[in-house]
Design a protein around this nucleic acid. Sequence first.
DNA 1: TGTTTCCGATAC
DNA 2: TATCGGAAACAA
Length: 723
Amino acid sequence: MPAARAVQVLLPVALDRALTYAVPEGMVVEPGDVVVAPLGSRSSIGVVWDGAPEAVEGARLKAIEAVVAAAPFPDAMRRFVDWIADYTLSPKGQVLRMALRGLAEEGEAKPKFGLRATGARPARMTPARERALAVAADGTARAKPRLAEAAGVSPSVLDGLVAEGALEIVELEPPAPPPGPDPSRPGPTLTPHQQHAAEALRRTVADRAFRVVLLDGVTGSGKTEVYCEAAAEALRQGRQALVMAPEIALTVPFLDRFARRFGARPAVWHASVGESGRAAVRRGVADGSIKAVVAARSGLFLPFRDLALIVVDEEHDGAYKQEDGVAYNARDMAVVRGRLEGAPVVLASATPSLETRINADRGRYARLVLPSRFGERAMPEIAAVDMRREGPPRGQWLAPRLVSAVTETLAAGEQALLFLNRRGYAPLTLCRRCGHRMKCPNCSAWLVEHRFRASLVCHHCGHSGPSPRACPSCAAEDSMVALGPGVERIRDEAAERFPEARVSILSSDLIGGGERLAAELDAIERGEVDIVVGTQMVTKGHHFPKLTFVGAVDADFALGAADPRAGERTFQTLQQVTGRAGRGDRPGRALLQTFDPDHPAIRALVAGDREGFYAVEAKAREAALMPPFGRLAAVIVSGPDRAAVEAHGRALARAAPKVEQVRVLGPAEAPLAMVRGRHRMRLLAQSPRAVDLPGYMRDWLAAAPPARGALRVAVDIDPQSFL
DNA sequence: TGTTTCCGATAC
DNA sequence: TATCGGAAACAA
């Protein structure tokens, strides 16, 4: 009897290795095939992985149950999953789970039924029946709600007609797939600078080789049009393009820009796309019928069949970081994917992240700079308002200088934007009597008052409850006071200060959802609003032609946090927000209300010195050994025995050839370092015994096993050094 | 003694 | 991650 064949199967559970399964007689499987395999008491979907099957004691080997009729998981994707698991120190199976999203949901397409006229007349005629039959008379089949709406009758009228044989239930044809994007449509007219950049990207795509290009252009320089030409080149070759954007930017206007270029909306992939939509996109991407996808970060795990280009728009955006589960930065992983697919990657931003700039400076990435369309002075004139010296009177939030700037703007018949990165009415509610602060019962964050909804909301977990009349702690009546401003409060103050102005709020939790937001944006664009009070939302898409003044109500919003990237974030956000001011023919103005006018980020904004700011930040980052400077930026070994801890740190440094620098920190410093690294620093092992690391780190630690008393190891690694 | 809850080991 | 089983905790 011949030995049963066996293969490795990776399952989408938190297991770090593939399991060995027997292949039943007559079944043929190749690496990449999607199969169903028994796991414990249940069955799971899985992917046949590379590698020789391990010897498992005969009796324990279970057999694959079935091969799933889905496109096989491409080779590059398998290596991508392996790479990410290795780099992020997560179980392979957990990474696979992300890459299989949309597949599990994929079922048989359920047939849909509709109604069609039979030609028969019902015994009794009514006006409603007349209307229904008149609409149905053309002989086409329609879904019941559609027919009812078209005829202006209730669905039960149609039921009656079915019962009497005047309408029949027929299976509806599945809707024709929407037309694909058409790259041969004429593109927009590009400026010479755009044309030059677009041509460079077109050539890069045509070269069919991995390469990273930073597309660096200020707001309004037309980056989208430029990378769309790169996508057009990919489509002309009959290959696929992936455009990634932060979730919040995936709005209808954003998609419409693609529609205008290509004559069709691209396929969309993000969290709020339903299950059936996901299954359809995944299938289309895998079989090659979908050529262009616009996606949030999770779209990076779609199994493209022939990927020719990845664009990461707004590459500096923090939304690319996934923090829970597998921790990764989709911008970096896009670069990895591009390398594995042999496809170019375009990183686009008006305010590139420091990491990306350094990579460009060092020649790892190419750089294309798009100057503004509007000549030299496109950047608005920015000044700081020192809130310590010229702040508003108590109980108000708009400084006199800012108020007069808004007055002038309105007098000129132009629009003003008041930017505040805080939703709701007030970020903190406390009791005047006993000092009790309203905290979220689930997550210890302050509850934010939303006066319009009359509730207190946790912006962390979504918990929400009514605003209390009496203090929950000391029961004092009417003692609760709102502390600090949110956009709602600024709106109230603006309405009071400028009673004749039309004031509007732009915030992600606008009552009425996406439609209301779109309507609000349109109104602003048409100039029907004088003062816009908005959160970070205002930086995304949409051009406001009449906007000439921007006031940052709290320019220090990020500076208080113990986040080493706070300065960079402040600079980037304020640069983007203030960049919205200005009309085609002249630059706008901006005022930054700050308590720290000497902060490097604020000073750089006022001086318009982007390069100087980045130079200073780069130095600070290098000193802190943060990416992209430290290959292995920090090893933290913490434990009771300081000598053992340091010995292990040194041994680890010797054992790890790719490590440029190692820091050994004592237990007290370890928590600080963990915060510093945030997304890249991971706890590797909690005890020497539990050291079970993937890939390269396992090798390092094998050469330098943790000493007794050395309990923790954390690392911070630049992915570029492992490409 | 039966029942519930928690936690760690395990999955081929 | 999902599940299982053993140990401990609990009620009577």
